[in-house]
Amino acid sequence: MKAAKFKYIRPSSLDEAINLLSDFGEEARILAGGQSLLPTLNMRLSQPKVLIDINRLDELQGISHEGKHIRIGALTRHVDIAESDLITENIPLISEAIEYVAHVAVRNRGTFGGSVALADPAAEMPACTLALQGTLVVEGPNGRRQIRADDFFHDLYETARAPEEILVEVQLPIRRSGESFAFMELSRRKGDYAMAGLACKATFQDNRFLSVRLVYFGTELKPTLGENVMSQLEGREWSETLAEKVIASLEDDLDPVDNLQGSAAMKLHLQKVLTKRTLAEVVQRLGNV
């Protein structure tokens, strides 16, 4: 199927892009990597009037070390994340997770910002951004503002970004000593969106969790914190029995729905399995920190 007609424009500055977005309003869509947008256009599932191509905006490029965080420009391609030493050294969770993102041709084109802004509930990068307590920088007609990842993901494909705002960059805190991470995902085939997935950040002392953050994806409408499980882990001494015990309360954190991949019961079960495995993994890694 061929895309329905639309107009195309390629602004040469971020200001221009924001003005265009304001002018066209809901008729316009931002075209970043296009790896999620173009399929919906080619299937005529979405028929915007105008595409605003931001691919050549230099302001949105690049990965840099800025104080206590790493800044990832919204247009940074997945391939550049995967190949970045700055990321590998400072944000190991992202390095681990990026391996699960799609396939080479899509990674060459798809962008970090596009993925986070779209907020696909089964995507890896939004979950990691939430797990890492990143900060999202958006810019609109009223200027720039920062949104904490905790406040960003609202519902299915709904985020705190206003329609006339563009995601400019994501700031991810540099790993601190004592922190450990683990990432696990189940998908039927390499590169598919997750059926169930879990991104974890934890600190540990004397065999006890000081803090732990568990972000579930692939089973909910948005990347979701496992708050009940987290609170039951914090301060507790690690054991497999503890893991076994806490996963029961995952039912209070998650509310999966049946879909093409399987039943809600299966999804909850898989998240429980991943929770056990991820906790065991992160603890083992903490031993090596």
Binding site: M195, G262, M266, H269, L270
Partner: peptide, 13 residues
């Protein structure tokens, strides 16, 4: 034989 089918057969869900 999807994971759902397997897990049901294994009585895990």
């Amino acid at each position: 034989m999807t994971p759902d089918v397997l897990l049901k057969a294994l009585n895990r869900i």
